[in-house]
Every structure is written in structure tokens, then in C-alpha cells.
Design a protein around this nucleic acid. Structure first.
Lengths: 253, 253
DNA sequence: CAGTGGTCTAGACCACACC
DNA sequence: GTGTGGTCTAGACCACTGT
């Protein structure tokens, strides 16, 4: 009788709306996710098995199963055959709430301010042309931005986009992140690769951040791809290491 | 008739073995993955729809579907309702072959060499105790390693593990990565969080890498969690920025 | 042994994209 | 329209874990 801890009965207030366009599995998954996040399903508790859940919610087992898989993919729950399903610890959950492809700074909750230093269409320099897969001199949108938090400049961002594709306005760029704007413009982001390194600031770079020459900088180059494998954006950024670091979380396998 | 490009017929030599303990969906998924990776399914080609695939392989549609979802999750394929399934471009695919939670250096194919500088059980210093969730002074395994590639030292790795859990041998550590050893020891890794930053090397640190004081260092702190939310490992590392950078890829959403 | 999650089937209907 | 992927059902059997 593996009821070491009493099962979590379904009646945690889950309701499903069969008239909604939202898929059933997603309705269930989201409500369970919320229940975990606000503590109604406590860390370490065993959940009822999927058959029982399915029966009580009057959905089929595959549908219930899909909801569970969603939680597993999000790292909120661990399943073991023959054992059951448990909610992960609060600490792990907190650590997983960090983002990755999202705008770096927005997540850190420091109300960042972005000023556009420059926004123009230029001929692609050779390194940019190579990355974007276009010819040297082809028109690209070049965006230079300075990000600050608590009026301390933290990051200098340089981005290149193929000019024919989409060119944001200054105002839009000050209001939201580049990725959000791309999504609004109907670009289907697929994936990105990035390289993070470090180097020493030049005098001019250090001055940007109110530091001295020789200060450590974090650097990041990122290339973002489209659904169709086309490069959407190339970014070359540097950050004041004394005020900024990259935080990320990883799920196993 | 949306057959802009002739569908990829099933007969790319896929075979399934119903006697195998390997799940059907996985057999199919792996063979398709292989076909994409070695070019038999070329980038941009449309694949036959899942009904056709299922019929030709004599599996049910949900099973075929699950194989497709595996490819989507790996970023190898893009699906659009009403349109079809296409293989992503070769460039995107290559960019996605980079790892994340795996051993950093192993993937870069530089045949790294690891020397164990020190391996002992010590009382937990306060920061370590806090991260591992144990009391200050409790026994922890402390591992100091130096990683080199092409006989150039690149990284200084410091790890702490709860001593009661698992203590690797020197020999094992020189042969394989810490994470591989943990897995062999039956530890179910769940997730990890890491922080990447930069700073300036002290004289002693610089000497390790054959550099001068003031050289830029990349730093990384990582905390890895168990299935059950217990901290398995805490690492505090620094890297010679002139010879090392972190490369990673991200899948959208 | 009983209980759990993991796999698989053979259907069905729906939502969306394109012509 | 037609064709595609997205959702959903109601069963079945298997594999693993624990007692």
C-alpha cells in the first residue's frame, strides 16, 4: 500500500471547460502548475495516479497524461514508473523560474531602461554579412543600445538585422525588447546560438559604464534563426561584469 | 495540391522491430533523426504527413505522431497546421548540436586533459554549507581540478559534494566528467542553475594559465539538483577568457 | 503481489492554411 | 474545398517498483 503520504485527491478545485478553445490537457496542466506554484500542491507530495485524475476530471487517460507530461517538461514534477508522481522541491522550482531566450535583463526585475544610441541602415560589414548570409555591403539595420538599471549603465548592445525583413522604430525599441518586437512582426523564432566570453574594457568602453580601463567585461554574441533557417538577428554585446552576470537554469537531458 | 516539393516518401529505408524492447516511436524517431543528420532527408524538404508515414510503417497515428514530436523537440523539424512538416536548415541543425548540461569542454572536441589538484573531505565553509543545505563544518568532498586542452591550462574547477552521498576516486575523475560519474553512481540529476560572470585574475590565478595579472577570467557557479530537490553538487570555476568561452544553443519557447 | 507510469491501437472530430 | 497538424477517446498490454 504505497500511500506513505496520502494521495493528493483531485479535489483541489480543478475545473475544465469543454466549451473553451483551450485544449483540455492544457487547461488541466495550467491549473496544476498554478496549484504547485502557489503551494496548494506542496513540494514532495505524491499526486494521485493519472487514471484517478482522469476519472475525476472526466477526461481520457491520454489527455490527463499529456497534462502530466507538460509538468514534467517544465521540471515541476518527477515521475517514476512503479512509484508515482511527486512535486519537486520549492528550491528547485524557484531556480527553474529563470529564463533563457527571453530578454536578459527584463527577468531580473530591475526595471531596465534602454536608450537607443543609434538606429540606421548601413552596408553590412564583412563579419556581419557572413553571419547573416548576405553579401558584404547589403543593407542591414544596425541598432546600438545602452541598457541601464537603477540609472547605472550595464550593457552595450549592438544588433544587426537584414533590412528588408523588419526595421523597428526607436520608440518601440525603448519600450520593449527586440525579440518581443520581432514576434509581433510575425517572425517565427526557432532557435539561437550564443557565445559568452570575457575581455578587458578599452578606455572608451569603460567610460560608458563609469569604470576604468582594464575593467572586466562580459561579452555575448548571439545568432537567432527563423523557422526556415534564415538568420533573423545577430547581436554583439558587452556587459559591465561588476554589475552584470548571466543566470540560467538547465533541465536534465 | 500543396505538393510544391514532392513529398518525402517513407521508403527511406526505415525499419521497425516489434520484438525490440525499444519503443516503436523511438525507433522511428531515431531513424528519422539519423536520416536528417546524414543528409538523406535534406533541409527544407517536406516530409509526408503523419497518416501516410503511419500507414507505411504499420504503426498507429499517435505512435507516429510521438516520433514527430520528438523531432520537433530536438529542433530538427518544423510543423505547421495546414501546411506540413519541413526539415530545418543545415545551419540551424549544426548550431543545435551544442550541448548544455554536458561537460563543457568534452563537446568542443579538444581532447581535454584533467588533473586532480586535490581531493579531500573537509568541513563545509559557510557559503558551501548554505548552498548545499547542510550545517557549517559538515563533511563535504572538495575537488580541485585543472583542465587543459592541447597542454594549455584553460579552467580551474572547484566542486563540493555532500560527503555522505558519493565520493569519486582520483582515477575516475581524470578519466571522465563529474556528471558522468554521478550518473553511474545512480544519482538522478534533475536540473541545475548557473551564473556566468567575469573578473580579473589575481597573480596566482593568472600564473596557472600562463598569463599576467589582470588577465580576464570567465567565472561560473553552478548548483545541480537531484530528483528529490537535494543539492548534488556545487561548483565554482574560473576559465582563461583568452582561451575559453561558453557556447550554447537555445530552442524557442 | 498490487500499483504505478510507459507504450500502443483504431478510430473520431476540429482548426488552420492554401488554393 | 482539400490537406495538414492538433486534440481527444476508450480501451489494451507491458515494465518497473515496492511489499
Amino acid at each position: 500500500m504505497p500511500r506513505d503520504v496520502p494521495l493528493t485527491p483531485l479535489e483541489h478545485g480543478l475545473v475544465i471547460d469543454r466549451g473553451s478553445p483551450v485544449p483540455l490537457y492544457f487547461q488541466v496542466a495550467q491549473q496544476l502548475e498554478q496549484a504547485i506554484k502557489d503551494g496548494r500542491l506542496r513540494p514532495g507530495t505524491r499526486m494521485a495516479n493519472e487514471i484517478e485524475f482522469a476519472a475525476q476530471l472526466a477526461v481520457s487517460r491520454p489527455t490527463m497524461r499529456r497534462a502530466m507530461e507538460y509538468l514534467v517538461d517544465k521540471g515541476l514534477v518527477v515521475r517514476q514508473r512503479g512509484v508515482g508522481t511527486r512535486v519537486v522541491s520549492a528550491e528547485v522550482r524557484r531556480s527553474l523560474e529563470l529564463t533563457s531566450l527571453h530578454d536578459d535583463l527584463a527577468a531580473s526585475g530591475q526595471q531596465p531602461h534602454t536608450s537607443v544610441l543609434s538606429l540606421e541602415i548601413v552596408g553590412a560589414p564583412d563579419t556581419v554579412a557572413e553571419v547573416l548570409g548576405i553579401a558584404v555591403g547589403d543593407p542591414v539595420t544596425e541598432i546600438l543600445r545602452l541598457r541601464s538599471a537603477r540609472s547605472q549603465p550595464l550593457a552595450h548592445l549592438t544588433n544587426y538585422l537584414p533590412a528588408d525583413r523588419f526595421t523597428p522604430t526607436r520608440e518601440a525599441l525603448e519600450g520593449s525588447g527586440l525579440y518581443a518586437l520581432l514576434r509581433l512582426a510575425g517572425v517565427h523564432l526557432h532557435s539561437a546560438t550564443q557565445v559568452i566570453g570575457a575581455r578587458i574594457a578599452t578606455t572608451a568602453e569603460a567610460r560608458l559604464f563609469g569604470e576604468r580601463r582594464g575593467a572586466p567585461l562580459l561579452t555575448m554574441q548571439r545568432t537567432a534563426y527563423d523557422d526556415r533557417g534564415i538568420v533573423v538577428e545577430y547581436g554583439n554585446h558587452f556587459y559591465a561584469a561588476s554589475h552584470y552576470s548571466f543566470q540560467m537554469s538547465l533541465l536534465s537531458t
